[in-house]
Design a binder for these strands. Structure first.
Lengths: 113, 113
DNA sequence: TTGACGTATGCCGATATCGGTATATGATTG
DNA sequence: CAATCATATACCGATATCGGCATACGTCAA
């Protein structure tokens, strides 16, 4: 079965480093594929494929602009990810406490050896 | 090259639905593998493997507890994801405007046909 | 229409994933 | 120690990924 298709899941789409870089770049402005590929040091087909994935999950959209095709950001799809991770916010601090308990536990184990 | 190893990247680790479910479950309490597998309807080896990935990216830690091995949440690794997506927050609303412009563009294209 | 530019797709190889089953490893109890 | 329970790992098959190269498709201008 392998992994869920990147094309159907925002979490998967942004699991790829280069795609995240693309999104960051698109935060600044709309960009045609060629320029994007150049700036991020990827091949044009490579960039095209990543953009396809991003488009299919709705994080990016494109519009014709003369000879070019401009890609632009549609960040709404990132909101669920932000909110999901936000659901763990209360644990970011608490985690220290738990970690502390964990460390205590380790110490105890050592003493028992 | 395939995808970046899930084991070295939190974004990849949470790209998997079942692993996200595990994290949510661990928000409530520490749990041994068997129980976790049962509650989430996966096999024990399956759960074990997912936990391994989560442990290797630091989202989960384990401690011995008698005959069991309890897995607990360490959500700190989710913070970078939250913050990264948060970097797009200002675009969630703006996206509507851009989308609007996009729609206008589509209309225009149709008229040109 | 032809040519030139911009972009997308097809195909391939190498690799990693995920799920399942069987089995090994570990830990606890009698 | 042996038996039992808990957990991890190995191996496998099916599939999907990503990158690169070649090439098809699309669009504009002369």
């Amino acid at each position: 079965m392998a992994r869920a298709a990147t094309t159907s899941d925002v979490f998967n789409a942004i699991a790829e480093q280069q795609r995240r870089e693309i999104l960051v770049l698109l935060r600044a402005r709309e960009v045609p594929v060629t320029e994007l590929a150049q700036e991020l040091g990827m091949t044009q087909p490579g960039a095209s494929k990543h953009l396809r994935v991003l488009r299919e999950v709705g994080l990016v959209r494109d519009r014709k602009a003369g000879k070019h095709r401009l890609y632009g950001l549609d960040a709404r799809g990132l909101r669920p990810v932000h909110e999901w991770t936000g659901g763990f916010e209360q644990f970011w601090n608490e985690s220290f406490d738990r970690l502390d308990a964990y460390v205590q536990d380790l110490k105890q184990e050592r003493q028992e050896e």
